[in-house]
């Protein structure tokens, strides 16, 4: 049973690693930031699965912090960092 939790955690970790590609590709700043948001949600799930799999309930508190933080980063981004001159392109498929 424990092995199963860890396998599922690995699947989620791989999905996070795939999400890294979006940070590398961009193209707008918001796209990169959204990938960090994905890390927040996936990270919470990974931590909860680890908490159960390794039988350490304190890990759930780390998940709680994750849940709060991804929003903080996005708010900081929208309010302070997304500059006007960032608009290099106006939509359109960047790849296929």
């Amino acid at each position: 049973m424990t092995t199963l939790y860890l396998c599922l955690a690995i699947v989620l970790l791989l999905s996070v690693v795939l999400g890294l590609l979006r940070i590398m590709w961009g193209p707008t700043a918001a796209d990169r930031m959204m990938a960090a948001q994905l890390f927040g949600t996936c990270g919470v799930a990974i931590l909860l699965l680890l908490a159960r799999g390794l039988e350490q309930l304190i890990i759930e508190d780390v998940a709680l912090v994750f849940a709060l933080l991804s929003a903080l980063a996005t708010v900081a981004f929208v309010r302070r960092a997304w500059r006007r001159d960032d608009v290099r392109r106006t939509g359109g498929p960047d790849h296929d």
Binding site: V16, I23, G26, A29, R32, M33, A36, F39, A73
Partner: peptide
């Protein structure tokens, strides 16, 4: 630089 910051945030989470 912006990319580096976002990567840094992800690095922190991992």
């Amino acid at each position: 630089h912006f990319k580096a910051v976002v990567l840094f945030i992800s690095f922190g989470l991992l």
